[in-house]
Design a protein around this nucleic acid. Structure first.
Lengths: 341, 341
DNA sequence: CTGTTAGCGCTTTCAA
DNA sequence: TTGAAAGCGCTAACAG
C-alpha cells in the first residue's frame, strides 16, 4: 500500500520515455538540453515529463557523476548566538549554487561529532564546513578526509587546515580607537569568561590602541561571565573605585546592557558622562537599549558565505588553502558613544 | 589529479572485496552482519574495510532501498527566534534515528521556497518539515507530494495537512490565571503587531481567563510592534491613564523588558506594586532582567521533536494524520510576578 | 558458505 | 537523430 499522502512511486525517466514513445537515453538527452535531439522529440519528452511531474533522481545522477551536490554543515552547538548568521550565510551561498546542505549538530559532544562526520562521508558530501561556537582553536577533523573541509568561527588547531575566524584583536583595537576619537582617555574594560580566546584577543587589541595613544586601562579588566548581571555588577564596582572613568569598553553587548543599567542607577548620563561600547552588534540588544549601543560587528554572515565559497572552489579543484584567516570586523556607531543631535 | 586534500576516489565495496579476496556480494553480507558468512571470512572483510577506511555509499544504497534516510527542513526564515529551537528538536530527533537533515531557508520568498521544494524532491527526501516564522496559517505545499509533510509552528491553511503549532490561546489563559492566582485584579495587556494570530490568540485566551473570574481588562489592549521600545512607551501610557493597574500581561518577553524599564522609571516596584508577565520564555531576556521574568514557554524544541516523530512514523507507513494540533505550553514562574523570599 | 546475476535511475559512449 | 549497452556502488535473489 502506498503511503497515505496520495504518494506512489516517484516517476522515473523510464516512465517519461515510455509515455513520450522514445528510448530512455533519448529522454535523458532531451531533458538535459543536449542538442542532438530533434525539436519535435524534445517537445514530446518535455510534455511527458511535465504531465508526470517528473523530477530527476539526484541520487542516481550523483552516483554517475561522482559528486552529489551536497555539503555538510557540522556545528558544535546550534544554541549559540554565532551559529545562526554563519549558517545563514553558508546556506545562502550554497542555495544559490544549487547545492544542498546537510545540517548536523554535535551538541558539543565529540562522539556525536564523529558519528555525524561518518554519516556525512557516507552520504558522499562534496565538502564540509565545521562551525564552532567559540573562537578558541578546536581539534582538527584530520588531514586524510576525502573531501575539503573549512573551519568557520572556531579555527582548527592544525595549521594545515583552512580556518576562517573573526579578527577579535582588530575589533578590540577598533573599539578603543573609536572611544579615543570620541575624546575619552579614562577607559575601563569589562569582559566575560577570561578563558575565552575572544576575551583575551579583544583585550589585547584594546591595549594596543591604548598604548599607541600613550594611555593605559583604568583599573584591571573585569572578567567573569558573559552576562548582563556581570555587566551591572562589574561596572558598579569599577565606577565606585574609579569615578574618573569616562568610557567602558565591554566584551559583549550583553555586558554593555548591564553597564547601561548601572549607569542609569548611578545617575551617570550616557554618553556624556560615560561612553559605553558593546561587542557583537547583536541587534536585539544593541538597538533596544537606551541609548542604543555602539558595537563591533563580526560580519558573521559574510564569514559563512566566505566559507561556502572556499568549499565551492575546492569542489572545482581549487586548492582550499590553509592557515587561520582573521576576517575583518566593522564598527557600528550608535548613541552610547556619541550624543545624537 | 586528485583534489588537494590527500583525497583520492573514495574506496568502494569492490576495493574491500578485492583486498579481502572475496566476491563483492560476500563482502556486502559480511559488512552488513548477515549470518550466512564464515567467521574467518567476515573477519578478513572487516579488516580490509578498516584498513581502507571504507564507508558505504549511502546514495547507492538508497537507490536500491527506495528510501534515502534524509528529510528536508524547509524554513521560511532562519532569522527568527522561533526557528532555532524547532530546528534543534527536529535535528536531534532525526540524528538519533540515523536520518540526515537537509536545511533549506526560503528567506520568506515563495519562489525560493518552490525551488527548494523541488530540490528536496529531486533528492528524494523521505519527508519534509515546513517551519514557518509566525503562527498565522501559511499556504499548503499541496496534497499531491510524493512524501509526507508536517507543518511546524506556522500551520498549513489546508485542513488536510498535519500542522503542529503552539497553543497560544491556552498560553494567554494560563498567564492571566497565574496573575489572578497572585491576587491581581486590575490587569492590562501590552502586545505587538495586532495582525499576528499569536497576538490575537493570546489576547483571546487572556480574556477568557478574565471573564471566568468576573474581571475585565483594564484599558484597551496596546498593540503596535514586538519591541522593547513599545513595551516602555505603551506601559508608560497605560500607567498614566490607569494608575490602579496591578499587573501587565505582555505578548512577548521583549515587551516585558520594556515594561520593567518603565516601572523602574516610575518608581513602581515589581512585583509588589506591579506584576509583569512576559511570553516566549526567551531565557536571554527573561533571566537577565531585574527581577527575572515570569513567562510562558511554548516548548518549541519538543514541538520540533514531535514533528520529526510524525515524519518518522509516516516513513514507516503510519498515516501522518491531519488538522491543526495545538501543543501545550508551560508557565515558568520567576520574580516578576511573585516576590522571592 | 560463496559467487554470479540482475537490477535501483540515470548518463554516456558508440553503433545503427 | 536515435537507441542499445555499459556502468556508477550497492543489495538481494538465486545457484553453485
Amino acid at each position: 500500500m502506498p503511503p497515505s499522502e496520495g504518494a506512489m512511486r516517484a516517476t522515473t525517466l523510464n516512465d517519461v520515455a515510455r509515455r513520450a514513445g522514445v528510448s530512455i537515453a533519448t529522454a535523458s538527452k532531451a531533458l538535459n538540453g543536449r542538442d542532438d535531439v530533434a525539436a519535435a522529440t524534445r517537445a514530446r519528452v518535455l510534455a511527458a515529463a511535465q504531465e508526470l511531474s517528473f523530477t530527476p533522481n539526484e541520487m542516481a545522477r550523483g552516483l554517475l557523476a561522482g559528486r552529489t551536490g551536497t555539503v555538510g554543515l557540522l556545528t558544535s552547538d546550534l544554541e549559540g548566538r554565532f551559529m545562526l548568521p554563519i549558517l545563514m550565510g553558508a546556506e545562502d551561498a550554497f542555495g544559490a549554487g544549487q547545492i544542498n546542505v546537510f545540517l548536523c549538530d554535535a551538541r558539543g559532544d565529540a562522539i556525536r561529532e564523529q558519528h555525524h562526520l561518518k554519516a556525512l562521508l557516507s552520504r558522499r558530501v562534496d565538502g564540509i564546513i565545521v562551525v564552532g561556537r567559540q573562537t578558541d582553536p578546536r581539534p582538527s577533523l584530520g588531514q586524510d578526509l576525502p573531501v575539503p573541509v573549512v573551519y568557520a568561527y572556531a579555527p582548527s588547531d592544525d595549521e594545515r587546515d583552512l580556518s576562517l575566524t573573526p579578527d577579535n584583536y582588530a575589533g578590540g583595537r577598533m573599539a578603543v580607537e573609536h572611544l579615543i576619537a570620541c575624546g575619552r582617555t579614562r577607559i575601563a574594560h569589562v569582559s566575560g569568561d577570561p578563558s575565552y580566546a575572544a576575551a583575551q584577543d579583544r583585550l589585547a587589541g584594546a591595549r594596543s590602541a591604548l598604548s599607541a595613544a600613550g594611555l593605559e586601562l583604568v583599573g584591571d579588566p573585569m572578567f567573569s561571565e558573559w552576562s548582563e548581571h556581570w555587566g551591572r555588577d562589574s561596572s558598579a564596582m569599577l565606577l565606585a573605585r574609579h569615578p574618573e572613568i569616562d568610557a567602558i569598553f565591554c566584551g559583549s553587548d550583553q555586558l554593555a546592557r548591564g553597564v547601561l543599567d548601572t549607569a542609569r542607577d548611578l545617575g551617570r548620563n550616557v554618553p556624556d558622562d560615560l561612553a559605553v561600547m558593546g561587542y557583537d552588534n547583536w541587534e536585539l540588544l544593541a538597538t533596544n537599549s537606551r541609548p542604543q549601543l555602539t558595537s563591533i560587528d563580526a560580519n558573521l554572515q559574510q564569514l559563512g558565505r566566505h566559507a561556502a565559497q572556499r568549499v565551492f572552489d575546492a569542489i572545482d579543484g581549487v586548492d582550499v588553502g590553509e592557515g587561520v584567516h582573521h576576517l575583518p570586523v566593522r564598527l557600528v556607531i550608535r548613541g552610547s558613544t556619541i550624543a545624537r543631535r
